[in-house]
Every structure is written in C-alpha cells, then in structure tokens.
Design a protein around this nucleic acid. Sequence first.
DNA 1: TTAATAATTTAGATTTGTCTAAATTATTAA
DNA 2: TTAATAATTTAGACAAATCTAAATTATTAA
Lengths: 223, 223
Amino acid sequence: MNYTISEENYLKAIYHLQAEENTVTTNLLADKLKTRPASVTDMMKKLNAKKLLNYKPYYGFSLSTEGKKIAVTIIRRHRLWEYFLSEKLNFSWSEVHSLAEDLEHVSHKKLIDRLDEYLGFPEFDPHGDPIPNSKGKIKTTKKIPLTQLPTQQFGIVCQVTNQSEEMLELLQHKEINIGTRLEIRKFFEFDHSIELKIKNSIITISEQLAQNIFVTYESSAQR
Amino acid sequence: MNYTISEENYLKAIYHLQAEENTVTTNLLADKLKTRPASVTDMMKKLNAKKLLNYKPYYGFSLSTEGKKIAVTIIRRHRLWEYFLSEKLNFSWSEVHSLAEDLEHVSHKKLIDRLDEYLGFPEFDPHGDPIPNSKGKIKTTKKIPLTQLPTQQFGIVCQVTNQSEEMLELLQHKEINIGTRLEIRKFFEFDHSIELKIKNSIITISEQLAQNIFVTYESSAQR
DNA sequence: TTAATAATTTAGATTTGTCTAAATTATTAA
DNA sequence: TTAATAATTTAGACAAATCTAAATTATTAA
C-alpha cells in the first residue's frame, strides 16, 4: 500500500488533468510532469498493473477508484502542508506550493491526521482549494471573480490577477489576502461598488478591484 | 549541493557512529543501516568521489569537514521535526523518531530555519539531544544519571530506565517527562534523597528514582 | 479513402542503489 | 611466521525510473 514518489506524482498529475480535460493523454501528462512521452507510457504500464488506472494503449487513461483514492490522500497532504506553511511558518502564497511538493510525500496517515487536527481542520488551503478530509471527502468548489459571487454566500480569496504594486498596496490596506474569507453584503447599482463582510468588519471595494479578485466558493454541484 | 535520501542516511549514520567508535568500519555501518557490506563499499566510493569522506580501502572511513557539515544539517532537521511532532502534534517520545526519519529529508534551508523560529529555537529535542543551530553549532552534552548531575547545573530528562507501571505512575505524578528541564537544589546525606527544581516548583525524589532518570547537560568539553 | 502527420508505444540503453558470490586483503592464533 | 579466519572489496546481476531513436497506431486533410 505504499507508493514511490514518482508513482505519487503521476497519480496526482492525472487526477488534476482529469478534472480539466475529459481524456488524459500521454503527451499532456508528459508535458505536465516535464518528462518524455516514452517515460509516461512506462509508468502507465506499471500503474495499470497495480490496478490504479484504466488504461487502453493508444487511447489515454483515467484513474481507477483506487487510484483516485490515493490521489486524494496525496492532495490532502499537499494542501494541509501548504496551510501549515502559510499559517504557522508565514510563508508567502508563492512559496508554499514548491515546499509542499516535497512534504506531501511523507505518508503516515496518523501524522497527517494529527497535523489536520492541530491546524483546526481547515477547509481550504492558501490558494483557496478545498482540503479533503481524513475520509477523502472534498468540498466541491468553483473559482469565480468576486463580482459574480452570490450575496449571502461566503467565498475564499484564491487568486489575484493584476499583481501591480498599487493593487497589492490596496489589498494590504483592506486586509484582503489569499485565503481571506469574505461575504458580499450589498451590491450598489449606481457605481457597481460592493460592500463586503470580512471577519467582523464591513468594507467597500470598487468594481475594478472586485474584478481582479477571484474566490472559490462551495457549490452544490458534484463531480 | 543536493544529496539523495540514501546518501543522507549514510552520512548521518557515519556521523553517529563516529561519535561512539573511533573508526567506522564497513560491517558496522552495514549493520546500522540494515544493508550489506558490499552496498556500503559502493556508497563509500560514491561519497569519497564527492569528497565527503576520508576513505582508504580496507581501513574504514571518516567524514570530511564538508561531510560533517552536511550530516549536522540532516541531524538539525531531524531533531527540529522531532520537537515539532512532540510539542505541537502531541506524538509520544517513541513515535517521533521514525516520523522524523522521513521528514528530515525535506531539505530547504529556509523551511527548516522558519520551523526553528516557529518552535522558539529549542535547544534540545524530546530525547534530550541537542539541536544544532542554523550555523551548525551544537551544544556539547553528556548523558548521566540524575544522581551525578552537579548542583546548580540544569539537565534535561532524556531517558528513563525501568519502564514499570509503578515507575511511570510516579514520574507522571511528579510531572517528570522526557524533555523536562530540572535542576538539583540539595542533596541529603541521610537518605540520599534529592531536592529538585522543576519549572517553578520544588520537589523531592528518592535515590532509587534518581538512579533511573538520565539527563543530558551542557558540558564544557568540545569534541 | 488514402496518404501524410501526429501521437503513442517499443526496443534498447543509462543511472542509482541494491544484491549475491567470489576474490582479495587484513588480522589473529597457533 | 604462517595458516586460518574475518573483514572488505570486486564482479556481475537486477529493479526502478528515466532517456533516445525507431516502430507502430490513430487521426486528418486532400
């Protein structure tokens, strides 16, 4: 029941690609993993032999139920470490990913569950992506600009397009960071400005700013 | 400047063996790493080529200055993770070692330095072993029974011989754990009982108990 | 529908870390 | 001092993960 770092990286990559594309192909995966198509084929044979894939030569592949389960535990580890790095060690949003890429391969269930508990069972990582729980359940979320978030529905800031100095200064002043949980209270037709609730304070932001802030929110749709 | 997990494990093992034995031999190392002598020889050639060892075939080996430096950073990672696991995630003394064996190979200097800072720059791990600082300096310590600790000199509980129920009950009651920092205040000739200071309270323990408690303390000797 | 092109797989090689069995070197006991 | 024994190294093999180059299969454009 233990997989090599390489196997884990392949499983994770396939999982992510599956979420976007309907068929995962050899070249796509080779590209994502910065490896050669021939290497991908080799690994596909191996994962197929372990029944982690549905693989038909020349026709792409998809994760089996078991393969999906493993991918989710790897993603859980990754996102919990990201949360830890950001929340406890004060690493920036841009730094956590690559560090978590290494930490995610430490695979002791008890360690990860204790970490989860220590962090207070966070639901989203610093990028706004949902963290699977210890049973592998994931909240389904969508990523949308803040302008499209329904009122009364909370969202978590996951991305900021436009990384200009001016923009970041404004965000800092308003205390809006990656991971910030916010809720739309009111939308003003006059200038399209938006009244938000962040923690316990109410603030107002312009449409221009809101368009550059992307949030994830829990959607009812199941994948 | 990056080493494989296998190379790191060899370097660490040699470092620890060097501290006990004066010459590290092939069989000794094979035994410690649960591998075969031939495998050790193979790796010695490799580490020698990288100038991490002083190696003379058939005559054992020792770490070069560079090899020692690397070993110390690995040990630093290991002990910081042990401290984290024990202090923050509440793992028991017996569990932390094997978990840290995996975590220690995640080798980003900045991550480890941030972790160190987050933990408050601890000086000793849960086993009472000193944690090298970010520059690689290690406090030299000795492990002695509590009965031999000089008065006015603090020590850190690192080992408890006699693991009987009765003993552990007594330790728990007195709030003496692995990692507990204590200091001898008075030694009574009459019954050889010892008055200790733990945190801010003064307690008394019997000679019998003290003989079974081992502590590390900072010695002035340099290795 | 078929020829050209693109995608994928196979064949064979390489590196790393390990192993067994045999050979070599050092140590020890008579 | 030398023969037996113990320790170490060498030779050659293997599995995992990768690669390049060639072969095969699928797709597409005429």
